[in-house]
Write a protein that binds this DNA or RNA. Structure first.
Length: 292
DNA sequence: TACCAGGATGTTG
DNA sequence: CAACATCATGGT
C-alpha cells in the first residue's frame, strides 16, 4: 500500500462526485468509493486504484511493482487530483465575488480534477465540441473501445485512451460510422498526427509562456479558443486559462447569479475579471455546481 | 419542428 | 474586430 499525504483543503467526497458524473465514463471506474484507472508507462499498461481514509491510499494491480512505477503513479495521482495547488490563494481571490465565494464554501477542498495527459484533454474536448455531454461520453466510449488499449484484471476490462499513433493511422471512414461528424473526426486525426509526428509534445509546451502555448495549440485545425483553454487548464495547470465560450459555464453562471438569460461572451469576460488569476479554477467550480 | 448542445472555420462588412 | 453562414449528430 502506498500512501499520499493530502493537504488540509482536500475533499475526497467531491472528487468522487465529480468523477462519477457520467455513467458512460470509460477511462476510470469507481467501485465502493475506490477509483480505478489504467495508464501507460514505458509501453505497458499499469492499473492502479485510489481510496481514501484520512489520506490517499494507492494500490497497484499489476505484476511490476517497482519503485519507478510507484513514483510514476504517485506523480500521476498528484497531478490528476491537483494536490499541489495552494487553494488558499484561489479562495482569497474568490472573496471578490460573493457568488463564487459561496461555491467555494460549498465545495471546500474540491480540486480541479485534471487530465495529466495533454493528448487526452485535446481529444476529449474536441469530442465535446458543440454536442451535449451525454452524447460526447458516448462518442468517447466508442473511440476507446474500438481503438483503445484494454487491460484485464479479475476478469474485468479496463481501458486506456488510444495512442496518438493508433489514431493517426485511422481515416475519416473509420470514425464516421461511430457517429463522429466529418469535421470532428478530421480534427481528432489532426491532433493525433501532430502528436504522433512529434510536432507537439507536453514537454516542449511546458517551457513556453501562456500565450505561446495557446498560439501553438490554436495552430491545429480544429482547436479553437475554447479547446485550447480547456486543455491548458486541465492538462497544463494554467489555473487562469478561461474557456469563456463554454455553454456549461454559461448555464451555471445564469443559475448561480439568478440571471434572466445566459451571459454573452463579453459580459462573462467582464464578470470574470473578479476571478483573475484563477478563472480556470472558478470555471471548474461553476461546472461542479451543475451536478446539483 | 425548431432549437439546443462543454465550438470551429470561413466569409463578409 | 464583430456578425453571420455553414458544418453535422443526437436529444427534446
Amino acid at each position: 500500500m502506498i500512501e499520499i499525504l493530502t493537504p488540509k483543503a482536500f475533499n475526497f467526497e467531491q472528487t468522487l462526485r465529480f468523477l462519477s458524473r457520467n455513467e458512460k465514463e470509460c477511462l476510470h471506474t469507481i467501485k465502493n468509493n475506490e477509483i480505478f484507472k489504467v495508464i501507460s508507462f514505458e509501453n505497458s499498461l499499469v492499473l492502479f486504484s485510489i481510496s481514501f481514509t484520512k489520506h490517499l491510499q494507492i494500490s497497484i494491480h499489476s505484476e511490476n511493482q517497482g519503485q519507478k512505477i510507484i513514483d510514476f503513479v504517485k506523480d500521476y495521482v498528484s497531478d490528476w487530483l491537483d494536490l499541489k495547488a495552494n487553494l488558499h490563494f484561489f479562495y482569497e481571490t474568490a472573496q471578490n465575488d460573493e457568488i463564487l465565494a459561496s461555491l467555494c464554501q460549498k465545495f471546500y477542498g474540491l480540486r480541479m480534477i485534471g487530465m495529466p495527459d495533454l493528448f487526452e484533454s485535446l481529444v476529449w474536448s474536441i469530442i465535446g465540441q458543440q454536442i451535449n455531454l451525454n452524447f460526447a461520453y458516448s462518442l468517447k466510449e466508442k473511440l476507446v473501445q474500438n481503438f483503445g488499449q484494454k487491460h484485464f484484471y479479475n476478469n474485468e476490462a479496463f481501458y486506456a485512451l488510444p495512442t496518438p499513433e493508433r489514431l493517426a493511422g485511422l481515416t475519416l471512414e473509420d470514425l464516421q460510422p461511430l457517429q463522429f461528424s466529418r469535421n470532428k473526426a478530421q480534427y481528432i486525426l489532426n491532433v493525433s498526427r501532430e502528436f504522433a509526428e512529434g510536432n507537439l509534445s507536453q514537454e516542449v509546451l511546458k517551457k513556453l509562456s501562456f500565450e505561446e502555448v495557446k498560439k501553438e495549440l490554436v495552430k491545429i485545425k480544429g482547436v479553437g479558443n475554447w479547446t485550447a483553454n480547456y486543455s491548458m487548464m486541465k492538462s497544463l495547470k494554467n489555473y487562469d486559462a478561461f474557456p469563456v465560450e463554454d455553454v456549461g459555464l454559461h448555464n451555471a453562471v445564469k443559475t448561480q447569479y439568478g440571471l434572466m438569460a445566459k451571459p454573452t461572451i463579453s459580459e462573462l469576460n467582464k464578470m470574470a475579471e473578479k476571478w483573475k488569476g484563477w478563472r480556470g479554477y472558478a470555471t471548474f467550480y461553476f461546472w461542479h455546481s451543475l451536478l446539483g
